[in-house]
């Protein structure tokens, strides 16, 4: 199982989002605290497609539905980039977390 540190994943995701944000004419700073929906204007299909590209980037699959389902339990149905990074890191480095029942 490939081990990737959290800082590398954060750099990957921030790099990706900053690259894309130029096309959205988004001028704000993108940081771990940035919300995908409230700040970047994501729609649900954007989350679906972003998860596909992240899986392609890391050449593996992550249980994104589980993550998104957890959002449904929250008062604010949104996710910060930092949480996304935590999620990827957790599943990149934890075999058990990678194979949920």
């Amino acid at each position: 199982m490939t081990s990737v540190d959290q800082e590398s994943i954060l750099a990957d995701v921030l790099g990706l989002m900053n690259r894309l944000a130029r096309d959205w004419e988004y001028s704000g700073e993108i940081s771990p605290e940035t919300f995908l929906f409230a700040d970047l204007g994501f729609e649900s299909i954007d989350a679906v497609v972003l998860s596909s590209f992240i899986q392609e980037h890391y050449h593996r699959q992550f249980p994104f539905p589980q993550l998104l389902a957890e959002l449904g339990q929250r008062e604010v149905k949104d996710i910060r980039i930092g949480e996304l990074v935590d999620f990827i890191h957790g599943h990149m480095n934890n075999t058990d977390a990678d194979q949920p029942s």
Binding site: S44, Q61, L68, A69, E70, G72
Partner: peptide
């Protein structure tokens, strides 16, 4: 793989749709 078989409907629910 059940986890790979994502539930888009669940996503939509999670996202307030």
């Amino acid at each position: 793989n059940e986890e790979d078989e994502a539930e888009v409907m669940q996503r939509l629910r999670a996202l307030g749709y």
